[in-house]
Design a protein around this nucleic acid. Structure first.
Lengths: 353, 353
DNA sequence: ATGAAGAAGGTAAACGATTACGTCAACAGA
DNA sequence: TCTGTTGACGTAATCGTTTACCTTCTTCAT
């Protein structure tokens, strides 16, 4: 493959001139420029980005470390990132990494991405690589956390207000007359899920409802585990009035568990969850969920990162909190009178809204 | 950031020795090795992958050019690719690009990925960049097509037998007693969708059924367009017995259109489509679909590509055809007798299976 | 004592750009 | 004529590795 020297000699100019016409970085006479351009096309020359990166010490590449592209929330995130970085004047590429929530994998990805000299990193931290992140921050390496953060690490971030959002779901469930509300919770080291649980606890406390141990089941963040966990909830006696699912995989697992038992939702048990997605309206019952602006989260994270990289912004890291919205559909439907006779756990009965 | 020279001088050895201990590329005395290693960790040295790539002329990076990560089929594909390339002894990264089926975008991605000197490319070709691909092939650049191919371009590929698979769906629909079968078809330049249509035509012909123009509506490959297209199908009089959706977005659009009209599936109109996905069993009705082994397709494409890159294989490009399976669920349920009175278009009636 | 072989590690030329400096001619103003 | 300025372009150092060749000691058989 032809290099810049080949082009230069064919055009009868120096390599500097070739470089300058390619980058339009200094004036070159029209006639000379034309000779260079035609040499380039005759030789089918393409600038070597690697050599260029070495010299300029940036690569035009960023890394995105997420848990799993297969999860619609994360694929939206990636789409958002892609949206912004590819519309930049100098297109930036993204290297995608799936940690599957494994801190060791995360660590390995971090290593190879740093070796490949990405200009910056967007990460949904899986777990405890605090020391690594801390050292990146100290070198003021451009880094933004998305979807979650790690306590004690002060870095740019874009999240939603998980606590408030889940509190709003729980409030909705209570308003619908549900009292015995269970939680199907993913096991994650990150703060997001923890905050969702806190929102539940807080709102239940406000309403004076019980959040006894048995009502919270925790399981790995994949669909089969979620279905198993969901089944455990259905083993409870009395059955919960409703279950709050802390993310989309939990929701799907719960739906499967309910279907597998031949129960009906919301008649027998109601559901509300986190994460809305494209396909949600084809589910029956349609699922009540808090929708995160997932694409926008990716876009915002990318914007934050790019402005750090371009050094158009410095100083204290910013923390963005994007708005969620509660999408009410049938799955959270009002508590059935018939059930209240057998399973009412609370004290005071409130009429369904 | 420390470089190899810094490490060398701190350890009191030459750069060659440092390089050799890092790469384990020649014997170094234990005592020397230890000095080098500790210099590395004291300086927090990390090898510069860019300089390394420049010297070795490969990057350990491949590109994946697909249409949209947000589509579960493609995110599975990406997952599959990731699965294999990150379990290689020398981890390879993947740069992800979403063309949104736009050939111009595809072209732009191709340009930047080649400039970044990726070692190879996996692409679901959006459209006509034939000349570009042809020239890559002539330079024997590692390239594999996935999900679709371009006529006239002989390159490694992994696909499913789209024609046979869709023929099997149509046959199933016919067996269920459906006669007036419509198609909701995505507009794509690639061959995959075309072959799915051919499968339909072929099987309808075998059964002696009509495939009149009005029965095939074509629309852009996104959900809103699909819903609009689906509505047009529902405007037909008489209503089709069933509709075959050529991909998952078409299916979802069709489901939405049906729900929006308050029609029931399969009682009023049956559906069967291409692409099964995780969430499909939470839909009501559950959708009959041909399942592509999407993750495996990604894995196989990656394997093919990596073996080309490693030059462990050469010669004629191989074309893999992976197996699909028809997942029968309720949406394709047998044609209702009540409807057959008003909408029977065919001649002979066959009993529902 | 000598030469060969082996062990350990050093020297310096690439790889292909970018870019700080230089150079040279033409021309203007004094 | 001389000096300064401008326009157009060239020279070569540099980015941080890898790796083909060397060099220098030891050791050992003859």
């Amino acid at each position: 493959m032809a290099n810049i020297r080949d082009v230069a000699s064919r055009a009868g100019v120096s390599v500097a001139t070739v470089s300058h016409v390619i980058n339009e970085s200094r004036f070159v006479a029209d006639e000379t420029k034309a000779r260079v351009l035609s040499a380039i096309s005759e030789l089918n020359y393409r600038r070597d980005g690697i050599a260029r990166s070495l010299r300029r010490s940036h690569t035009g590449t960023i890394g995105a470390i997420i848990s799993d592209v297969t999860n619609p929330f994360f694929s939206d995130l990636v789409k958002g990132i892609d949206n912004v970085v590819h519309n930049l004047p100098n297109r930036v590429n993204v290297m995608l990494c799936n940690t599957e929530e494994d801190p060791a994998k995360e660590r390995a990805y971090l290593d190879v991405l740093m070796e490949k000299r990405v200009d910056g990193l967007i990460v949904a931290p899986a777990g405890d690589n605090r020391a690594y992140f801390q050292s990146l921050i100290e070198q003021s390496f451009p880094l933004v956390f998305v979807d979650r953060t790690l306590s004690g690490i002060d870095v740019e971030s874009v999240e939603v207000d998980n606590l408030a959002a889940s509190a709003s779901v729980i409030r909705h469930l209570i308003d619908q007359g549900h009292r015995r509300i269970a939680v199907l919770k993913a096991t994650l080291q990150a703060n997001s899920i923890g905050n969702r649980l806190s929102g539940y606890e807080q709102e239940m406390a406000v309403a004076g409802l019980s959040t006894s141990r048995e009502l919270v089941v925790e399981c790995a963040s994949d669909i089969v585990s979620a279905q198993v966990g969901g089944s455990r909830l259905l083993d409870l006696d009395p059955l919960p009035d409703a279950v709050f699912c802390t993310n989309n995989f939990m929701t799907l697992g719960m739906v499967r568990a309910i279907n597998a038992r031949g129960l009906r939702c919301p008649e027998d048990i109601a559901i509300a969850g986190f994460d809305d997605f494209l396909w949600a309206d084809a589910f029956r019952p349609r699922i009540t969920a808090v929708a995160q602006p997932s694409i926008e989260m990716g876009e915002e994270a990318a914007r934050l990162l790019m402005s750090r990289i371009a050094k158009t912004r410095s100083g204290q890291p910013v923390h963005r909190l994007l708005d969620t919205s509660l999408i009410v559909r049938e799955s959270s439907g009002p508590r059935q009178l018939s059930r209240s006779l057998t399973s009412a756990p609370g004290t005071g009965d409130r009429a369904p809204a």
